[in-house]
Write a protein that binds this DNA or RNA. Structure first.
Lengths: 107, 107
DNA sequence: GCCATATTTAACTCAGTAGTTGATAAACCA
DNA sequence: TGGTTTATCAACTACTGAGTTAAATATGGC
């Protein structure tokens, strides 16, 4: 149930993208994820909730810690959407369109 | 605001994604773009402004009309970011392994 | 049971955004 | 010229979202 609205909205925030970058290197706890940022742990906790609701992370339990792990499916889905809208407007297509346009004007 | 902030934020709205889908088939005017939606032309005009500020569309002039064209560069940038953050060890590797397995069975 | 650590929840502020209606601007047409 | 079409701007409402501080919850060590 990967929702593009939620995925793109989650990716629109630089803090959340940095968290994803960090998690691409391996799982981490909220405390570890908060460390590089000048915002409170509570704010990070909210960001993690957004990422979780978008399906971009899953969370485990290790004593008091709630380690986060990246979940790639929503990234794949959004990449697929972008690719589907990119291929039709790539350079070859633009050139073809331009050629047809020119042919219509000067037969 | 980074370009990625603006691009992903623009892509997070279903109306704007539908507009992009429409524009992938060729350029269109605000009036044409507004037609499928149950919202006012003014609201569409705001959406187009968001897309323009994100660099996702460019606009021309044809009499009273302001035809919109898709601009693919921001889509490329966001696709690049996503591609760089897919976890390359788990699922991707599994898919490759499956592919190799299939190739071994049916050369 | 009690205390420290790690994290979440609650309540609030502030800014931004999606939508509305009404007015305005620009280009064509008769 | 005056009227029509096309699109934007202005002002406003309602909602969402990122951040805060303070309180609550969960877990392990003693």
């Amino acid at each position: 149930m990967s929702d593009l609205d939620a995925t793109f909205a989650a990716l629109a925030d630089p803090v959340r993208r940095a968290i994803i970058t960090r998690l691409a290197a391996g799982e981490a706890t909220p405390g570890e994820l908060a460390e590089p940022f000048p915002i409170t742990l509570q704010a990070i906790s909210k960001h993690l909730k957004v990422l979780e609701r978008a399906g971009l992370i899953t969370r485990g339990r290790d004593a008091q810690r709630r380690p986060c792990r990246l979940r790639p499916e929503p990234l794949d889905d959004s990449a697929d959407w972008i690719a589907a809208h990119r291929t039709r407007t790539d350079e070859r297509y633009d050139r073809l369109e331009q050629l047809l346009h020119d042919m219509k004007e000067r037969p």
